[in-house]
């Protein structure tokens, strides 16, 4: 039971980091990033490959986050002039592109068989029986770091510029804000956080395949932010917790009811969809709505 709780807390932590990143991009800056899973995959593969080639795991994770950030910048630079909705479509296609590459470039990613035996951080130093507890603590530290970083960003002059991008870009420009550069920076910071979550995921499961990087990941992160409340960082933590628990606990419905695997998978998704519909109808701003900043 403890094992299961620790397993879930790591999974929640991974999604919480990604929900914080999306909240920065969407909740504050209004950027419709439907390609989050691309950076999740890049972080996971980069950290896995680096650590498998002998780079210490913690360093591999840091480099993976940087690689994800660089890819984020490379994507953002040519596309930032696009209007919101066109940009959203670009992000979807990039995520699919990354998944197709990870499936087909066997020499690099192991193709559909994926990468196994991914080393775990500080595995030699921590006793095996307490390793799950250690990993949960490690995840918690990373979530806390990402939360503090996000909080510092949004409660600052930088955060106000993010909000003006969401509210009215022309208005921001008329006040002398170089809007495109702020979008780029926010894309980079978010990509780094999602890349870090991907790295964490790779070292947690020790085995990754392209199936782990389907668009459903992006969908779950969006569900977490919408449910928790856009523009509220605590909401992202709450939303990630609820959605991850719901999505993974419904796995066990099959133990009680006779269902085909496909039906079960669809029901689990439908439940998330239902929850999102209820949220939008009953609490359109999420469980924890954006709070007014009062001076």
């Amino acid at each position: 039971m403890i094992e299961l709780a620790l397993f879930f807390s790591v999974l929640i932590g991974i999604y919480a980091i990604m929900a914080l990143a999306l909240n920065l991009q969407y909740g504050y800056a209004g950027l419709l990033n439907f390609g989050l899973v691309a950076f999740f995959a890049i972080g996971a593969y980069a950290s896995a490959l680096l650590s498998l080639s002998g780079v210490p795991v913690l360093i591999a994770m840091a480099i993976a986050a940087v690689i994800a950030a660089i890819v984020g910048a490379l994507i953002a630079i040519p596309t930032m002039k696009l209007s919101v909705h066109y940009w959203a479509i670009v992000t979807i296609s990039i995520a699919e592109l990354i998944r197709v590459i990870s499936t087909n470039e066997e020499w690099l990613t192991g193709g559909t068989f994926g990468l196994g035996d991914i080393p775990q951080p500080l595995a030699a130093l921590v006793p095996l029986e307490s390793y799950p507890l250690f990993f949960a603590g490690f995840t918690l530290v990373l979530v806390a770091a990402c939360y503090l970083l996000s909080s510092a960003l949004v409660h600052s002059p930088y955060g106000r510029v993010l909000k003006v991008i969401r509210e009215d870009e022309d208005f921001g420009q008329s006040l002398g804000k170089d809007v495109a550069s702020f979008k780029l920076r926010t894309m980079v910071v978010g990509a780094a956080m999602v890349g870090l979550a991907g790295a964490l995921y790779a070292h947690f499961t020790t085995y990754i395949t392209p199936q782990a990087f389907e668009p459903i990941v992006t969908f779950i992160i969006w569900a977490a932010v919408i449910l928790g409340g856009k523009g509220n960082l605590l909401g992202s933590l709450l939303g990630a917790t609820v959605i991850v628990l719901l999505y993974n606990s419904t796995r066990f419905i099959g133990d009680y009811v006779e269902l085909s695997a496909v039906t079960l998978a669809n029901i689990r998704l439908a439940l998330i969809g239902l929850l999102i519909m209820l949220t939008v109808l009953l609490r359109p701003n999420g469980i924890l709505p954006e709070r007014k900043q009062v001076f």
Binding site: P157, R160, V161, K163, V164, R166, E167, D168, D170, F171, G172, S174, L175, K177, E290, K292, Q293, V294, F295
Partner: peptide
């Protein structure tokens, strides 16, 4: 044009 979901003070600080 204004940032509608920002307070008056926030708008001014932003500027």
């Amino acid at each position: 044009k204004l940032a509608r979901r920002m307070t008056l003070i926030e708008n001014l600080l932003l500027a």
